[in-house]
Design a protein around this nucleic acid. Sequence first.
DNA 1: AATATCAATGCGTTTTATGCATTAACTAAT
DNA 2: ATTAGTTAATGCATAAAACGCATTGATATT
Lengths: 301, 301
Amino acid sequence: MDFRQIRYFMEVATREHVTEAAHSLHVAQSSVSRQIVNLENELEVDLFIREGRRVHLTPIGKIFFERMKHAMNVIDDARREVKEYLDPEKGTIRITFPISLAAYTLPTVIYAFRLRYPEAKFQLKQALYQELIEGVIKGDFNLGLIGPLPLKEKKLQQKVLFTENIVALLPIHHRLAKESSVKLQELVDEPFVLLPEGFVFRDIVVNACQNLGFTPNVAFEGDDIDALKGLVSAGLGVTLMPEVTLVDSLPRSTVKIPLVEPNVTRTVGVITPKERALLPTEKLFYDFLQEFFTRLDDFKS
Amino acid sequence: MDFRQIRYFMEVATREHVTEAAHSLHVAQSSVSRQIVNLENELEVDLFIREGRRVHLTPIGKIFFERMKHAMNVIDDARREVKEYLDPEKGTIRITFPISLAAYTLPTVIYAFRLRYPEAKFQLKQALYQELIEGVIKGDFNLGLIGPLPLKEKKLQQKVLFTENIVALLPIHHRLAKESSVKLQELVDEPFVLLPEGFVFRDIVVNACQNLGFTPNVAFEGDDIDALKGLVSAGLGVTLMPEVTLVDSLPRSTVKIPLVEPNVTRTVGVITPKERALLPTEKLFYDFLQEFFTRLDDFKS
DNA sequence: AATATCAATGCGTTTTATGCATTAACTAAT
DNA sequence: ATTAGTTAATGCATAAAACGCATTGATATT
């Protein structure tokens, strides 16, 4: 067994396509095909089912794939750990985060971090709530920004960073657009524009409404925060969003209005795996995160 | 990076000796030496300190070694899992156990297991109490027989198998040798023969005595149960041991006498890691263990 | 039915690891 | 202090393994 075989295997397994895997690995198709066969011969099991020109994993192939993903994560982390050992400030931070933090919070933190450590590199992965948690547990990531923090996940270390206000975003010609504040109850009959199912931030809004006894009428869905802004801007509905995502500039033809009742907030924090230690550079970033938001809180109050 | 390099590295790291490692790997010394250098070049760190003709790990080398041990454990387990998937009855059970179970309990269970699954193989590792627990947590073993079960180890799954009586073993000419039972208090002034420090079974005896307000006078120490039997047999002292270790035959010139006050017992169980699943063959054995001792208990009562 | 695509395989070429021999540095013994 | 014996590293020729190309046989696609 060989690292190369495992690499080839993983690539073929994820793509279920030998030729594509070969391209992505920058080798000939025949090489990949042959290494897969070699691996199967050594393990004395079929990892793939060949149906015509299709290849897909056998049940045991799937198990093997999961195990190898784990092992390769351990090995990749070890390599990075060794490299970063001499020079943590030049290492890489791998971090996963929800879309709602993508626009403002994360870029701001990264910008500040790089002022102090200009050579640090980042690998960013936007993910849905559950994906994100799974990614940190399984070892694909050692750091995850998330809001709200998941309940009682015993494999995760959690740390609150800040709590943010949620405001209403309305089209500028909306009947409530001139108010200085709105109550959520006043939006009962409004068309909402929200993120699709699966995004936590959608759930936060829906839950807040349901606590008041109504289910929001979702008129349109947008795949990212900017899409939502566009929809509101076009007058197609109203939405709620964290205040920070509007901090730079308000979308054209919209107004943001504080939500006074209930006071909807969300708590954003960082999760790390309890089982694994952070890599040197990631540790720098983790400590920085806490320092950064502590200062921000001090500044606010 | 390459599996071969890691294998060579691990061998050199454990032996701190390139030539010996090469022998054990059945390759030339130059190959090992070369691969180590290649690995170091790729990682851009020195893994070994060369002092004259000595080689030993640098601090980062030690970290890398630990990570690779982990990764290799995962990979080895994955290989076994794949191989055993088709035929769990022909697989291998790796298990670690304390010396006190080596003489009777473990052989008996293995014998019974192999009556049902004659092709199952075993890899056995005798270990001290703490080593044993560490071994299961770290991933060197997935099964550990142990008595008593460790307290609140959150990474371990624990299962009680049986509780056994502890009896006194006396030289045949001992003043108490004719009694039908002894109280531990009656042995206050006796010379004891015990296992060395570090063995749980020694601690069990010492604790039992200390509960009665005395510290046993350890006249001789023996490295294994048979050594203790020999020492008692030679009249050099008395000892306590689990009744099962005496079930086959009593050592020459000794008598075993039930201990009535206090009724010293120990609970033997099996520990497995919570984080990892048992391999197919190990699962067979785990289930068998429970069945075996449940029946034994039924039989006794 | 014709064409395109795909995975597997035979074969010559290139890359990589290996073993042998040697070197340089060290240790231990005389 | 000298010498003999070890040890790890390196140059070099050889052996092993992976690679790419070309091809085959099977399967989708039109």
